[in-house]
Write a protein that binds this DNA or RNA. Structure first.
Lengths: 110, 110
DNA sequence: ATGTATTATTGCAATATTGCGATGATTGAA
DNA sequence: TTCAATCATCGCAATATTGCAATAATACAT
């Protein structure tokens, strides 16, 4: 087929995978880092910053917005994007809990 | 075109994105969680555990191996997989540093 | 109303991912 | 050697992602 079989997995597993997917492109990482640094920006800033076409940049913004990790508000003729702190925190904590619960001490592999 | 323009981004941005991509499928999350819980397992265990075909399971294992986060050693007629603790730690720290440096306090968005 | 600036959406082509059956490679046992 | 067990790889089909030009939508001027 070719479509991910989400029903085979738990809600949490799908959640983590979806979060990871939102971060699985360097442009989206760059956008988030830029937003963290500048606190807020408009799409035009990112088109210059990234070097991607406006349509492509807009699409990455859309995916980040769908994932909930950023939010945009209309600011006159342009749209101001910024991190959604609550979701950002959620991401961090979910990844944290995923990575934490492994005891690297007793790794007696095979 | 349709291929990610990696040259536009920094090494670190591509690294984080690649790490995220390795985690961007619920089956791979499930594999890692299972490995964390059981410490080690063979491919056949995962075929039962996941409910995916053997070929598909093997392919997900290959991607995790390519990402470096797991390692496999020949164990008689089967292959024993386990977490690579050093790379696991690296993943954790890279994500940690990515998520940490945002001051959620002063989010005066737009 | 008309024009300009900014962002979103559409439509398309190129590439990547997902999934599986079939086949191949390797190991250990009979 | 022959067989069964186990995992990897190949080849294919279906779906998803990436990227961009062109166009639409929106807001604010004039």
């Amino acid at each position: 087929m070719g479509a991910t079989k989400t029903t085979l997995f738990t809600r949490q597993q799908n959640d983590i995978a979806n979060m990871a997917k939102a971060l699985a492109h360097p442009a989206r990482i760059a956008i988030l880092q830029y937003l963290v640094k500048k606190n807020a920006c408009v799409c035009g800033d990112l088109v210059e910053e990234l070097g991607l076409a406006q349509a492509t940049t807009s699409q990455h913004l859309k995916e980040l917005k769908n994932a909930g990790i950023i939010q945009g508000t209309i600011e006159g003729v342009s749209i101001c994007y910024c991190i959604n702190p609550a979701v950002w925190k959620q991401y961090r904590e979910l990844f944290n809990s995923f990575f934490k619960d492994v005891t690297l001490a007793g790794n007696k592999c095979c």
